[in-house]
Design a protein around this nucleic acid. Structure first.
Length: 491
DNA sequence: CTTAGGG
DNA sequence: CCCTAAG
């Protein structure tokens, strides 16, 4: 499709939804402009994927015009995938997965949204991942991925000079990963978002696109069919333009970063399911709407922060503190918290208070773990930046350090499992591995053998060889040293 | 700037 | 997840 067309539609859609409250226009305009920028001037190697994402979003939007939300959801994805000209072999799977998701959500709704926190997200996630693996997405992408998918333009240049991997397969891998991330995000975000939203309404605050989803939720509240809502939005387009021009000068001064774009895109996908899931709970939504309005305005008026008012759609309480204390570093944080909160509040609801160091905690999905393990097996332990760049370039919230930390934890988990005849290990194991399928576990094990992580190694084998003199983090196992392994891998 | 290690 | 030291 023509990028210009997308741009037009995107911006239109946004404007349509925003005009209810003029104060939202600037922020929205940012977003639309960002989308426009993205569509019009693709320059990063994520463009193809991003394009797909936005394409998809838009399709969903269009579908909503004529069909109900869930159908639109599914249809939108299908069209977007099909239209992109790739992943044709995955369509069936994707559809089925989405149908599963759809069913799941319906069930939840029918159950009066009485689902426990943990729920069976994990199970669905697992199935999901396994399906992916079967499709060659997660499993051994570099080895199995077919080169037929390498259609994307300008992506081939992004290789990091990895030896032994052809360009085309590299591209395919990246695409696959993106695809994975995309779906992965959908599932995790949607499920988590939906259910969390059911249990604790406050979580609605985590939206970036508050104006968008507020509007949507509002309309869903009133039991308006989505088609109607969209149409009504169009009717009001005229007034939207007025507001638009009126507040036009409040436009952003800072261009959102890629991270923001990404989070935004994933959030918008969440928004849809979220809105459908909250359809049954109209009561507190209205108050939320108002609350968000108030906070939004309050934040926008904070002195010294107006230069990037567009970021103010984040309304975390602690953000207000940060806004005064912190500087531009905060911008990054804002963006992250937008989306990460969704999982944050799910995982650690009460951490948000004073000096919580863990500002945002994002659950590691199985797919991410698999990707990490893949990356480690490719690049070796210690090449966190490379792994991040290649395998996690689409998920900006994972820093190389995060990868390392996760790997550390994985090792601990696997070692704990090894020694599960021990006392506390049992407990630890259950917790750490509760969602770790045997495949991943096995791979972690293998990697743990060749890539011993000194610290963990030490603690694990402290029983057998606790020689007081050996302070060195050497592995007592006669295995290859880390550097050796790494060298072996690279050459 | 990246990684390792500790909190 | 965060912070800091070291290369």
């Amino acid at each position: 499709m023509d990028p210009e067309e997308h741009l037009q539609k995107c911006s239109n859609m946004k404007c349509q939804r925003v005009q209810v409250d003029g104060s939202f226009v600037p922020a929205i305009q940012d977003e639309s402009m960002e989308v426009a920028h993205l569509l019009a001037e693709p320059r990063s190697d994520h463009v193809s994927v991003d394009g797909i994402l936005y394409f998809h979003e838009e399709n969903v939007g269009k579908c909503c015009d004529i069909k109900n939300l869930s159908r639109g959801f599914e249809f939108g994805l299908r069209t977007s995938i099909g239209g992109s000209g790739s992943y044709t072999t995955l369509n069936g799977k994707d559809d089925s997965k989405l149908e599963v998701l759809d069913e799941l959500l319906k069930d939840v709704e029918n159950d009066g949204l009485n689902v426990t926190d943990e729920f069976s997200c994990e199970d669905y996630l697992l199935d999901f991942e396994f399906a992916d693996k079967g499709a060659g997405l997660c499993g051994e992408p570099l080895l199995q991925s077919s080169s037929s998918e390498s259609h994307s333009p300008g992506l081939s240049g992004s290789s990091n000079g990895v030896g032994g991997v052809s360009e085309s397969s590299k591209v395919a891998v990246e695409l696959s990963e993106y695809k994975n991330d995309f779906l992965d995000n959908r599932v995790t975000h949607d499920l988590h978002g939906a259910f969390r939203n059911v249990s604790c309404q406050t979580s609605i605050e985590d939206g970036i696109c508050n104006s968008l989803d507020v509007k949507h939720l509002n309309e869903l509240d009133n039991d308006l069919p989505l088609a109607d809502s969209v149409l009504s939005c169009k009717k009001e387009k005229g007034s939207a333009e007025e507001c638009d021009t009126a507040i036009v000068r409040e436009k952003r001064c800072r261009k959102p970063t890629l991270r923001y774009i990404e989070e935004f895109s994933s959030l918008r996908s969440k928004e849809k399911v979220l809105s459908s899931a909250t359809k049954n709970k109209p009561s507190s939504l209205a108050s939320h709407h108002k609350l968000r309005h108030v906070r939004f305005r309050a934040l926008r008026n904070i002195p010294g922060k107006n230069s990037d008012g567009q970021m103010s759609d984040v309304v975390l309480p602690e953000l207000q503190v940060h806004k005064q204390c912190l500087k531009n570093e905060e911008l990054e944080y804002d963006e992250e918290s937008n989306a990460s909160e969704s999982e944050d509040e799910c995982a650690t609801p009460k951490r948000y208070r004073k000096d919580d160091r863990r500002k945002h905690q994002r659950m590691w999905t199985l797919c991410e773990v698999i990707k990490l393990v893949d990356g480690i097996s490719e690049y070796g332990v210690g090449r966190w930046t490379d792994i991040k760049r290649v395998l996690f370039s689409s998920s900006s919230y994972r820093t190389p350090i995060d990868l390392r930390d996760k790997w550390r934890n994985l090792l601990r988990a696997s070692s704990a499992q090894k020694f599960n005849n021990r006392e506390i290990e049992q407990k630890q194991q259950q917790h750490a591995l509760r969602s770790l399928p045997s495949t991943v576990l096995h791979r972690v094990h293998e990697l743990a053998k060749i890539h011993p992580y000194p610290r963990e190694r030490y603690s694990k084998e402290s029983f057998a060889s606790q020689v007081g003199s050996s302070i060195l983090p050497t592995r007592t196992k006669g295995g290859p040293s880390k550097s050796n392994v790494r060298r072996k891998k690279c050459t």
